[in-house]
């Protein structure tokens, strides 16, 4: 039976190739920044960012204020337009589209379709003050996803339950604490089931005693979600616990990136060392 091993080999090769294909599909970035630049007038905020975010991956972006990390998230949410480079979401350019064989700037319909894969939580919550908590969360389900009100309500209550805000469903944002507002804002973004969630300094505007409840909610989402997360924060301990990868941005460039232990405990660049030293002195990086 001289042929048998060859058949086994061939089978194995086929299986390997199938697995490789699967891996490649899984490993295709959900978000891809390629040479992304942003300038506001004469001021350059980002100069050439290359960054891939994979499905389910939790990436934490750290860096001094004014380093451009918020701009990165805002461009992905289409709140800013890049001055150069390209952003791809799920293999598709975000700011351009093909019309009659030509690549043209994206119209509102293209933006809306791609944007639907992304959710964002803001530093200042940005809840709608004239709507109750419930309506804040049902709004996009009903008016974007066209889900019937009863079903939207059911999903909203389940989501509010998850962030511990179900009992406040009928209150207005003005009646809530900062931490509660941010938890509602998280529910509002999450209920749309985005593939990527952006958190732009979600605890920076909170009183210190309210930070914990918000971080706990984010941690719970990160643990369960197969959703990718891009999280901008100054909470180093939290970054270490939650991140698959930490990206350090300074002066509009990615200076260093890698696994949390690597970046936080064994920084290579002087700039990252200096940045982390400030946190060690102040809040203590355990």
């Amino acid at each position: 039976m001289a042929g048998a091993p060859a058949i086994v080999d061939a089978n194995r090769a086929l299986q390997d190739r199938a697995r490789a294909r699967e891996d490649a599909a899984v490993r295709r970035p959900i978000v891809r920044f390629r040479g992304v630049k942003k300038a506001f007038g004469a001021m350059t905020v980002l100069e050439g960012i290359d960054l891939d975010l994979y499905p389910g991956e939790k990436v934490v972006v750290i860096g001094p204020s004014g380093s451009g990390k918020t701009t990165l998230a805002r461009m992905l949410m289409t709140l800013e337009t890049p001055s150069g480079g390209e952003i791809e979401v799920d293999g598709e350019p975000l700011f351009t589209m093909v019309r009659r064989g030509r690549r043209v700037p994206a119209d509102e319909r293209h933006l809306a379709r791609v944007r639907g894969k992304i959710g964002m939580v803001f530093q200042h919550f940005n809840l709608f003050p004239h709507m109750t908590v419930l309506r804040n969360v049902t709004e996009a389900l009903i008016h974007v996803r066209r889900i019937p009100p009863e079903e939207a309500r059911r999903r909203t209550m389940a989501m509010l339950e998850r962030v511990g805000m179900a009992e406040h469903a009928d209150k207005y944002p003005a009646q809530l604490s900062g931490g509660q507002k941010q938890r509602v804002a998280i529910a509002r973004a999450l209920v749309m089931e985005p593939k990527v969630m952006l958190f732009d300094e979600p605890t920076s505007a909170l009183d210190p005693e309210l930070v914990g409840e918000v971080l706990a909610v984010i941690k719970e989402i990160a643990a369960k979600g197969d959703m990718a997360m891009l999280l901008i924060t100054h909470e180093m301990q939290f970054a270490r616990e939650i991140a698959d990868r930490i990206v350090f941005i300074d002066g509009g460039k990615i200076v260093e990136q890698g696994p949390p232990e690597e970046v936080l405990l064994r920084p290579k660049s002087e700039r990252l060392k200096a940045f982390l030293a400030r946190f060690r002195n102040g809040m203590g990086l355990r």
Binding site: M77, T78, G116, I118, N126, F128, E139, H143
Partner: peptide, 14 residues
């Protein structure tokens, strides 16, 4: 406030 526009865009409201 600008944040209201931005939240509405982030939620993909038309």
């Amino acid at each position: 406030p600008k944040g209201q526009w931005e939240a509405a865009i982030a939620l993909n409201l038309s």
